[in-house]
Structure formats: C-alpha cells, structure tokens
Design a binder for these strands. Structure first.
Lengths: 241, 241
DNA sequence: TTACTCTACTCGTATAGACGTCTAGACAAG
DNA sequence: CTTGTCTAGACGTCTATACGAGTAGAGTAA
C-alpha cells in the first residue's frame, strides 16, 4: 500500500488562503473571497469551499459574519519573541546578537521510529555578557532530515539549515501556551532564582510550505522575557461579553 | 419578525448526544452510534449527522477514527481562547453561551481620583452546566463614564455598554502575559484544584478609537483555557537563529 | 426628508448521492 | 500457520441543489 501524498482539496484551498492572509494580501478586517467566489476560483462545490474556510475559522484566523462575509481576524503574531523564526529579526538594530548553546542533541527512538532531538539554550550576547532567554526542545523526523545529527547548530540557525540543506521552508507554527514550574536544573540554566515564578511554556509544531509537520517544539521562557501582545477588538451586531 | 426558538437540527442532535455521553449511556472508550445509525435515529441526512458530531469533536468530547467509529474521549472538555478579543465569537455555533458573574463592582478612590473597579467571573454556559474560564478585573476612570457604577453588567457586555451609552469604541488592547499562582479563594472560584498549576495572567490596557486609554485590565485564566496561536515564519536573507 | 420595500449578495442549514480509504473479520491459498 | 483476498461497515471527501436568514444599498412612496 502506497502512502499517497494525496491532499484533500479543502486542505489545499485552506493552505492557499492561509498563505494569502499571512503574507498580507488579506489584512485584518478585510473580507476574504465569498464562498461563491471561492467556488469559481478553485472550481469546487460550495461545501468544499466552506470546509476550507472551516479550517481557518477553527484556527481563529478568520471570522464569519452572517449576511456580510468572512473577515480576517487578528494580525497573526509576527516578529515577536513568540515567533521562533523571527528571533534574530527582533534583535536587529540592537547591540545584541543571538546565541545558541546546544545542551543535548542526538537520535532517539520512539515507537520504532528514529527522531532527532535537540535541546538548546537560546539568548542574546552583548560585549559585556550573555543572557539566556529560553530553553528550546526540538524533535524532528530523522528519516526526513538524514545526517541532521552531525550538524553543528551553535553556528547556524536550525531553520536556515532546513532551507539550505533540506529544501524545507518553515512557514508557520501552531502553538499552545501554558505554564511550568522549572526544575532546579532548568532554573539554574535560565538564571532563575530557586523560588522564582512559574514560567511560560509554549508547545506545538512547525509546518513547512506544504503544511507538513516538520518539528515539534517546546520552549520554556525565562521570566525576564516579556510577552507583549496587541489585540484588535471587533464590533459585532449582537454585542459581545 | 419573530425571534423563533428554532434550533438547527444538528445542534439539537449534538445536545442529545452530549447528554447521553455526560449521563453515561456512552462511556469513555465506547463508540457512539455510527453516522448511518444517527441518520436513521434522527431521520436526517448524513451531512447533518456529521455536523452534529463535529460539534462534539470540536469540544473534545469524542474522537473520530477512520474506518472504526467515533469514540467517547476520556479527557475533560477544554475551552479555547483563540483570540483574546473574540470571546463570544469563539462560542458561535456551539451549544454554549457566554456568562458573566459580577463579584465586586463599585467606585474606589486612588490618589484623589475616582475609579470604577469591577471583578467578574466569566465563562460559558451549556444546558448542563456553567464553566468559569477567567477572573477579570477592570479599572476605569469614573469621571469619563458617569453613572457606570449603577449599571448591571451581568446582562450586557461591558464594551457594548461603552459603545451604546458612552459612545466609546474599544479598538485594541495592549497586554503583557505572565504567570500567577492563584490564591485558594481564586482557585476555588475558577474551579482549580488546590495544588493546580500556575495560571496564565494578562495585564494591560484597552484603548478607544482615539487611542485614549479607557480601561486597565487584569485577567487570570483557568487552566482549562487553551491559548492557541498561529505564527508566521518569514525568511530573511541574512538568516536567523 | 423620512420610512418602507425590493433586491442582490452573503453566510447558515439541510438533503441526497457518489466514491474513496481504512479497519477488522472471514475465508481461501500457499 | 502464514499470507493474500474479499467484504461489510465506518469515517473522509466531494458534488449539486435548495431554501432560510441577515446585511446593505437602491429605489419608491408618503
């Protein structure tokens, strides 16, 4: 039996639409094409077009409004510390440069399948000192990235290597926020006091240009990292709580 | 136009099924009736039966397995706040409605200036039960919103009142994420176990259409609330870490 | 001007049917 | 006993159609 690379149409459509939203063709507040327009754009039935939009609705990327249209919700977070890909960018123009220190890296077997697992301390360095900001754990499919266990990740970015050596282009991450009280070891690594606060943790996956999962990520942030968010408030006819 | 008590069939079906699951007719691990069986049980088309099950799937109450059936999940329902602004909207199409319970509301004086301070428990209500999701504290300038202390906020949304009675249109919030270990009282209110995890807290301000600060907000979220985010990954010529 | 109606467009719900893939068990062939 | 095939049942995808209901603007009547 061949593990076919068949992609349902609605998934393909939702990928296209997500791309247009993330790249800014449809901006927050804009209406995306109506279901009728999507039908003719992609040559599908309305049910399929709706199913594609369902995906984006469930991701919170768009919101439907009866009788009006479907609108882009919030600007997805970009260039913030949450954005694993934009880490360096957020530091541009500062007298700081990004550093990564690999704590652990190697192959590991889970359920008979080989994975590459890497734990890194990441942070910034100034001439005076180095400040670690997060402890990142990445797990990737070793068979998809052969030889990855021999690469030195202190020098180059993980995503840069994925692009240059594996022709894989990370496009988005889907993550969940929660809290974690660090173990004494981890607190030490991140420079947290032993009786410090619980830390913010993000867990999720990164997806490539084909919406294939390429990495499972867990990041524990030091308390000195600030998460600043701006949210838009929309007005609904029915009001909201 | 009559505000009919019309309930979509799929909602009615999902309510019935949810009831059967919660009352134990279908226990965790059991298969619920197949889509074909649901069709004949309720006399609907397969699409409608699937739509009903979709609701339960999105609530995490059941899990579909291709080729086998649809099974009752073991995990408790988790709520998801996809976007902090879209609280009500995220509940659309579900058999849940938003509720707010005012714990405390009144004027308070800080530095010789009068402020309106309100603490609310917010959450969702289904026919079966009410689930509180967050404890919100709002502080607003009393002189800008005269008479606000006499308004009943259990009925109507705060922002709805600001728009309708004070011609103030909240447009964005600027918030910071952090963690907090709830006091026993607060844990009790949010339904958290006494030895539960640290909670996610957001603190910040809301701004109106003129970018004037109108509200200071602090929200403590129950651990059952999921924060799901999608981030975009950009490519830079210089690479990133 | 004001208020109402009409209409086009949008999303919401529902039906009926078709075909594909996956699972698990029955059964036959080796 | 192992392997392969077949089949029934279950979910996954997709089409085509229909009608309901909310929105917004154009046009019309008072």
């Amino acid at each position: 039996m061949v593990k076919s690379s068949f992609t349902p149409r609605y998934v393909h459509m939702s990928q296209q639409l997500r791309g247009l939203i993330l790249e800014g063709t449809y901006k927050p507040g804009d209406a995306i094409p109506s279901e009728a327009e999507l039908m003719s754009m992609f040559g599908t039935a309305r049910g399929t077009a709706r199913q594609a939009v369902d995906v984006l609705v469930s991701e919170g990327l768009v919101r439907r409004q009866h009788g009006k249209g479907t609108f882009v919700q919030l600007q997805p977070i970009r260039h913030s510390i949450l954005n694993m890909g934009g880490f360096t960018d957020s530091l541009r123009g500062r007298a700081e440069s990004p550093v990564a220190h690999v704590i652990e890296a190697g192959l590991t077997e889970i359920d008979g399948h080989q994975y590459f697992r890497m734990v890194r301390l990441r942070g910034t360095r100034t001439p005076e000192r180095t400040t670690y900001l997060s402890l990142d754990t990445s797990v990737m499919d070793a068979s998809r990235f052969p030889g990855i266990e021999d690469i030195d990740f202190e020098d180059r970015s993980l995503y840069q290597i994925l692009r240059e050596q594996y022709k894989t282009h990370p496009r988005r991450t889907q993550i969940t926020l929660s809290t974690e009280i660090p173990s004494p070891d981890v607190a030490e690594l991140l420079g947290e006091p032993s009786d410090g606060p619980a830390l913010i943790k993000t867990e999720g996956s990164a997806f490539d240009q084909n919406d294939v999962e390429i990495e499972q990520i867990k990041v524990l942030y030091a308390s000195r990292v600030e998460f600043n968010l701006t949210t838009a408030i929309a007005e609904f006819p029915g009001g909201e709580l």
